[in-house]
Design a protein around this nucleic acid. Sequence first.
DNA 1: AAATAAATTTAGTCAAATCTAAAAAATTAA
DNA 2: TTAATTTTTTAGATTTGACTAAATTTATTT
Lengths: 220, 220
Amino acid sequence: MNYSVSEENYIKTIFHLQKKEGTVTTNELAGELKTRPASVTDMMKKLKAKKLLHYQPYQGFRLNNDGTKVALAIIRRHRLWEYFLAEKLKFTWDEVHEVAEELEHVSNKKLIDKLDAFLGYPKNDPHGDPIPDANGKIDTGKKIRLPEIPLHTPCIVSGVSNQSGEILELLEHKKIRIGTRLEIRKKFDFDESLEIKSGKQTITTISRQLAENILITHEA
Amino acid sequence: MNYSVSEENYIKTIFHLQKKEGTVTTNELAGELKTRPASVTDMMKKLKAKKLLHYQPYQGFRLNNDGTKVALAIIRRHRLWEYFLAEKLKFTWDEVHEVAEELEHVSNKKLIDKLDAFLGYPKNDPHGDPIPDANGKIDTGKKIRLPEIPLHTPCIVSGVSNQSGEILELLEHKKIRIGTRLEIRKKFDFDESLEIKSGKQTITTISRQLAENILITHEA
DNA sequence: AAATAAATTTAGTCAAATCTAAAAAATTAA
DNA sequence: TTAATTTTTTAGATTTGACTAAATTTATTT
Ligand SMILES: [Mn+2]
Ligand SMILES: [Mn+2]
Ligand SMILES: [Mn+2]
Ligand SMILES: [Mn+2]
């Protein structure tokens, strides 16, 4: 059970894509991995032979139990390294992903479990995404996008669904980060912008585009 | 200037081998890398084409300036990760090498320089070997093996030239580590064993085999 | 229900890194 | 200084993961 960098990248990407639609298509995967559909078909045959996914020609594919376990192990490594990079090495939010893309492929179980302990068993990566534990268990508390929260309902920012430097800059400027307590004060129909109270009663307006990328867990 | 894992392993191994003899042979390298001589010849052609080493068929090879720079960058990554693993993640001495063999190939300059800073710019890895700085400068203070030190001359353990779990166990038991102050009390001609005073006046006997693997820098 | 378009797979190449077996060169011994 | 031995290189295959171009299947339109 040791997979090549290439196989791991396919497995991880299928995992993320299938969360939306259930089943993943050849073109989708090719687009996401910046490769060609023909290459995807080749790899699907190999991963099917390794019994990591369901795949019938022309029918799309979906990870099976074993494939999902492998995916979660990769995601665990990825997110623990992201946490390490942000928390210990002082990388910014938008820089960690690229480096973690490489580190995630160093698959030494003891390394990762010791790293986890060293970091204090963090629950979430710097983008707010949950980190699977050593057994592959992951907190699947569903996240809602900010525009779906009713008026005057206090809530807490738990993630962002876009990890670019641009959104980071904007959120930093508005002092919104993971853990920030928010409340919507007004919703403007004209442009769907929101007036919010954030943290210590600062009031700002945020655009629909921004609001849609802010993820909320419903607690308090 | 980005090299494959395979190229990096060749470059690093040549660097280490050529310290002894100056020039490295095909068989030596094949033996060290557990590959076949024919594969070595292939790779030497490639590295020569990339202008990283001197190589004329049948004449052996030696890294040139550029190749040496690349090697030092790899060694820097390797040793910084070893330090991290031992110091932060509490791996033992003999476990770090294997993991660092993988981590060394993640070649993101910013990652390594930030890791260096996070670790407090360590000078030596857990085996006592010097860590090249961000410019590739490395402390080449020559190390002497313990049997070459004269009687009654205080000296300090600065490394070991064998990194197995077995030697670690023995050194731990005798409470000899890097930084330990030693002095030779007697040399026995019969079996070349040494009676030494180590640290706080503990006196023990160590075998010739062990003594030869203990490296000393001549200071105090 | 054809015809057209889009998605997917197959067929055939290619580059990187390895291997085995055979040939050639260099070294050592007779 | 030949002959035997060792070392190194060449030749030809193989595996992995990617590509292009062509064929095939599925989905959409008339
Ligand atoms: Mn990756
Ligand atoms: Mn993340
Ligand atoms: Mn390596
Ligand atoms: Mn070391």
